Every structure is written in structure tokens, then in C-alpha cells.
Amino acid sequence: MKKQHDVIIVGGGVIGSSIAFQLSKRHYRVLVVEKGTVAQKASSAAAGMLGAQNELEKDCTLFPIALKSRAMFPGLAEELKFLSNIDIELIQSGILRVVQTEQEVAHLQSVAAYQQNEGESVEWLSKEQVKAKEPQISQSIIGGLYMPNDGQVSPPLLTKALAQSAVNLGAEILEFTEVIDFLHENGHISGVRTGTDNFYAEKVIVAGGAWSKQILENLELSIDAYPVKGECFSVRTRGPIIKSSIFSTGAYIVPKSGDRLIVGATERSHTFDESVQLSGLLQLMMNAIQIIPALKQAKWEKTWAGIRPQTGDGLPYLGEHPRIKGLFIATGHYRNGILLAPITGLLMADLLERKESVNHPFRIDRLSREVNL
């Protein structure tokens, strides 16, 4: 029997799951096809910071939608808890971005001024104020930018909650099923081919993270995207030692439940190798201890790596294939996939329904040098 759906989503990470959730809410018959398991790869490797102000400083195209996406999380957390009974562990305790040089001070003070002019809550803290907020901070820290509205979630739980909520609203998920080709004729998508079967839909969305470029090569579409490996590790402490997520140029430290801290992340471009190298971990450890000396007494837990999708201009690709109608792409979120997942789900659902302008800044053909047409 012909397996017909309204929409097929290739990829069961946080982006694919968010799109599935939004489309299921609009009563679409959705099928998610995932070659591994839901919430795998980068969606499970991320620390989960919602750094709309921390990551996207000023004059950034992503800044407005990042703020909108961050604002969606409180309501989304309640909705997902109701639908899936999964707590995404939303914590809104702010992000503290610390500095150790006068050059960094000047830069972050300019960032603070810009964001204050934009109406965002942000506060420059002196060395003494940083120490008062986080007593375990090193004496080498000479100041910091505190962004109280930035926060964090558990990326695996967020992804699983989105996927389970979509299923509870009628979506189907096929795990351990790899898409090996696309079905299309006369310039219109008609489905996907897996290793075992064909599945049909008038709309298909590629949301394969760092692997999206490889998936799209079957359709002679080459996007300017590449993988970036990020290595992290986690430790446990005897009681909480920090309240805020702490970010610096050399490392970030994110407090989780159970007195657990995640420390990350290295950056190694153009590799899909998910192994962890000692050199990267050593530098992370040294940087983290320089910020929080008490980490010397922490107990080791584990280490891992995630492969993040970066693009040539740093903006994600959200839009329709330039030649094949009904085929959409949602990839290239790099370090902000967790933060941008809610707004991406909405944008892609609107694009499918032709409610969103095709001239938005994330369209697939935005620069001729980025897309080989």
C-alpha cells in the first residue's frame, strides 16, 4: 500500500522535532524519518544555553528572531509538559559573560550599550559585583556582562518532548531508517526512498543538521555549509558552586541538576569525526579552572563530542529548494540550534503554508555564491 503523508521530515533532532510539533498542531499528517534515534547527535551534545543576548551581540541578522525564540520557551515548556509529561528543565537564572582583559571589557561594554538601546535587560558588573554574584569566580576575572533573561534547558529532554508531543498529536516517527534518495518528478517533490521502502508526501523537509549538505547532494543542490565538531565534558561537585551559566572566550560552564556541570566547547571545523581528543579537553579544563578554581575538586563524569552545522555567512538555511517545489531545507543553526528551535518550527510551518515571505534573510538562494543553482 502506498504510504502517503502530508509532510515528511528528514531528521529527528531538535529542529526536525520542533517542525514536526508545529505542523502536527496544525493537523498535518507528519512522518519523521531518522537514521539513528530521536535526540541524537548535536541535539544531545549541546549544553542547552539560551544565549540570545550572549551569542548574538549586535548588528546580527539573527538577533531579533533569537529574542523571539527565547521568549517562547516558558510557554513552550508548559505546553510540552502537558502534552508529553516531559520537563525540559528550563532554568532562567541568566548568563554571566566574564572577561580577563581590558580589551574584552571595552568590547562587552559596547555590547551592553547596544542591547540597552534595544530595550534588553543587561548589566555590566565590576570585579566586585561579579564576585558578589558568583563567589567561586576567580580573582583573575575583572568584570562581566550579566544577561538575566538568557537561560538554559536540557537539549535531550527538549528534543524528546517536542517529538513525543508531535506523536501524541498524530505524527509518526521512524527511527533507524535512512533516507537514501528523494522521489520527484516534473519539478515537484513526491516523497523519499529509504533502504526498505518508499514514503510519499507533497512536502518534504530536510532537517539533518550537519548531514543536510550530504543529503541534498542527491538533488544537485550544494549549500555553503560545513560541520564543526565541539568537544565537552561534565563533572559533579559536592553541592552547587555556581548559579548562573558562565561564559568566557575560552570555555563555558553550565550548571545542571544534581550538582552537575557541563564544560565546553572546542571547535574543530570540517570533520565528522566524533572522537574526543585529549588536547582539546586539556585546554578546556585549564580554561574552566582559571574561571572557577573550585573545579579542581570536582569529580569527573564523562566526555563527548557533537557535530554542529555551520554556514558560510553564519545564518541558517530556511526555505524551499530553488528548483523542486515542495522540498524545504532547515539547517545551519550552528551553536544556536536549541535556542532557535521554537521559532524555526513556526517559521517552517508558515513557509509550508505560504504565510512567510520568500524574501526573508534565511532563504536558500540568498547569495549566488552560496548555492550552486
Rank of each mutant, 00 (worst) to 15 (best):
M1E: 14
K2W: 07
K3A: 12
H5P: 00
H5G: 00
I9L: 10
G12F: 06
G13Q: 03
V14Y: 00
I15W: 03
S18G: 11
I19T: 07
A20M: 05
Q22S: 08
Q22H: 12
H27M: 09
R29Y: 12
V30Q: 10
V32S: 05
T37K: 13
S44H: 11
S44V: 08
A45M: 09
L50P: 00
G51L: 02
Q53K: 05
C60W: 13
L62I: 11
I65N: 00
A66L: 03
S69L: 05
L80I: 04
F82V: 11
F82E: 15
L83H: 09
N85E: 15
I88H: 01
G94C: 05
L96H: 05
V98C: 03
V98E: 01
T101P: 04
Q103K: 15
V105F: 04
A106D: 15
Q109V: 06
Y114Q: 03
G119W: 07
E120C: 14
E120F: 06
E120I: 08
E123M: 11
W124F: 03
Q129C: 09
P135R: 09
Q139H: 14
G143P: 02
L145Q: 01
S154N: 13
Q164I: 15
V167P: 00
V167C: 09
L169N: 06
G170I: 08
E172F: 14
E172G: 13
T177R: 08
L183R: 13
L183N: 11
H184C: 07
H188E: 14
V192A: 07
T196A: 13
D197K: 14
N198I: 07
A201C: 10
K213G: 15
I215S: 02
L219D: 03
E220R: 13
L221D: 02
L221F: 09
I223N: 02
D224A: 15
Y226N: 11
V235C: 01
K243R: 13
S244M: 01
I246R: 00
S248A: 08
G250N: 12
A251D: 02
I253N: 00
V254L: 10
S257K: 14
R260Q: 13
V263M: 06
G264M: 01
T266L: 08
E267L: 12
D273L: 12
E274Y: 02
S279Y: 05
S279V: 09
L282K: 15
L284K: 08
I291Q: 02
I291V: 14
Q297E: 15
L315E: 00
H321F: 11
K325G: 10
G326H: 08
G332E: 02
L339P: 01
L340Y: 04
A341M: 12
L347E: 01
A349W: 00
L351T: 08
R354T: 11
V358D: 13
R363G: 10
I364R: 01
I364T: 04
I364W: 02
D365Q: 10
R369Y: 09
E370M: 13
N372C: 10
N372F: 14
L373D: 02
